[in-house]
Structure formats: structure tokens, C-alpha cells
Design a protein around this nucleic acid. Structure first.
Lengths: 148, 148
DNA sequence: GCTTGAGTCTGTAGCGACTACAGGCTTTAT
DNA sequence: ATAAAGCCTGTAGTCGCTACAGACTCAAGC
């Protein structure tokens, strides 16, 4: 069976060497065997597991989620329903992130459109940023720039 | 002029007390005066600066970006063009995040739609997650699940 | 005056998910 | 033989906070 050094595994999986060691430390990757001088010796199953982890991370699954996915796979007793449920939940958090970012996008786009980009120190964006928080709309006693 | 304790400032700005102290430590907020027993004493300009910071963070500006915005404002010599440029750049990173998340959403939605949610340990989502990385499509010698 | 509870103080450690060294050993290539 | 590249461990840094611990102070009620 083909064997890899950590560097080869890193190149093959596109996962940083330190990240691989980090995954080992936190128990996401199992401790691989070592050769006579203490180097880690990886083989195909490690490659596959690491690919799985990488792909899951790429798709935005969190560390605990990845852990759970791995457990399900490891223990050979996961059901499609369980995996699907995790994915559905993850999908909904992705969707709500998109929603939030779109709101943000609108606000920022408005800010930019209200600003003429002139050379003088007078900018509507700064005014918008200086707005007081929602929780307490009563204006404080002064109205100047903070520490200007 | 109205004065606040840190707790009052926290309530008014909706910024956590520890976060206010943290901002002070990292220099985003200036050191406020202290009363005889060492309590921080805030006043309107602090309130305004903290509101500015909060709003900027809400809009997703990073710590260095906030710092830069503050410097521009503090030094009274920012130009509208500079602020606008930062905002435009920030807007474009927000847009690319949205793009990425939408790709993600598609992949996840596809994964879910291919999965029938059955009770048996056989799931197309796991197969997708197990796919090898792009960088090296040559399959390794084995094809089994990682560590299953 | 005394107590109780809330508020504040400093300092440190933790989170997630890595990344970046330092300082030393081993392997490989020339 | 020597230099470069690779690997090892361990620790500290990143960002943006949050959560304590342990000590002090303040305001209100009795």
C-alpha cells in the first residue's frame, strides 16, 4: 500500500501541514504510525479521511459538525436520515447568513451612493456610522464627532 | 455634562462591558478618566465614539478597518474619498462572500435533494463528502470509507 | 451601623480554526 | 561532505470577543 509523508499528504489533500498536525491533536485525525525516526507515516485511509474533513470544512461544517459526521461514518451505523438532517440544518444557517449579508450589502451600497467622494472632510458615510444605537434614540447632549 | 459608569455606557450603546474594556486595552477606545475609587467615568464623546465603533462592527468592518476609520475621523483630515474607498472595498468583500455562500447553498441543496433520508447506512451525502480534493484527481489505491 | 446585593476593578484563560514561528533532528541531493 | 529541504515538538499569535476569579466599592434596606 502506498505510504505518504506528512508533506505528501499535505500536497495531495491541499491541507496545510500544521493543520494536519492540529487535526491530530484535537482528535479529528487519528495518530498515524511513525517510522524509526519519528516521522508520521500515512496511508490511503488517512488520505481519504482527511479529504472528507477538508471537503466538509470547505462546505462550512463546523468542527463539532465534522466530528459528528466522522463519528457517524466511523461507527458504520449512521443513517442517511441523520446525515441529511445535519446537512439541512447547515443549509438553513448558510441561507440565513446570505440573508444577513444581503441586508448589509444594501446598507453599504446606499452609503456609497450617498457619498460624492469629494476631497473635503465632510462625508455622509461618517454621519451614518456615527448614528446612535437603536436601543436608545435619545440624543446625548453634544452632537459633535467623537473625539474630533 | 452627563457622566456614565461603564454599565450605563454598556446599556446605552448595547456594547458588552467586557467588550468596552477590551476596546480600551487594544486602543480603539481611549482611556477614560477615573473617579476616586478607580471606576471609569464616561461622557458624551465616549458614548459617540463607541456608537461609531459599534455601528462599524455591525456593518462588518474589521478591527483594522475600524481603526482606520477612527483615525481618519480623529485626525479631522479624512476626506470623503478615503472613507468612500474603504466602504467600497468592504462592499466588494461582502459581495464575494455572498457569492461564495450561494455556491455553497447550491451544493448543499443538491446534496439534500439526492438523499432520500432512509434508515440504512448508505448515504449519497457521505459519498459526496468523501470525494477526493480537486488538486489530485488520481484515485488512491483503495476506495473504501475512511477508517470505517 | 451592618448587611446584602449589585456594580466595578484587574488579570487571565478560553473559544474556533487555524497559522507561524523557534530550535532541533533526519533525509536527500549534489 | 555539506547544504537544502523536510520533519519533529512545543508555544504563541491571530480576530473579536466572552467568561471567569477574586477583590473592592457603592446604594439601599433594616
Amino acid at each position: 500500500m502506498r505510504e505518504f509523508t506528512i508533506g505528501e499528504l499535505s500536497r495531495l489533500t491541499q491541507v496545510n501541514i500544521e493543520t494536519i498536525r492540529y487535526y491530530e491533536k484535537i482528535g479529528i485525525m487519528p495518530n498515524p504510525p511513525r517510522n524509526s525516526s519519528g516521522y508520521r507515516v500515512y496511508s490511503a485511509p488517512y488520505f481519504e479521511r482527511l479529504s472528507f474533513v477538508r471537503r466538509s470544512r470547505e462546505l462550512g461544517f463546523s468542527q463539532p459538525e465534522v466530528r459528528k459526521l466522522l463519528t457517524l461514518v466511523d461507527e458504520h451505523k449512521y443513517t442517511c436520515a441523520e446525515v441529511r438532517e445535519m446537512t439541512v440544518m447547515h443549509l438553513s444557517t448558510v441561507r440565513s447568513k446570505i440573508k444577513d449579508l444581503r441586508k448589509l450589502e444594501k446598507v453599504l451600497a446606499n452609503m456609497v451612493s450617498e457619498c460624492d467622494g469629494g476631497d473635503i472632510p465632510d462625508c455622509p458615510i461618517v454621519d451614518i456610522l456615527s448614528a446612535v444605537p437603536d436601543a436608545d434614540r435619545k440624543k446625548p447632549t453634544t452632537t459633535g464627532q467623537p473625539f474630533s
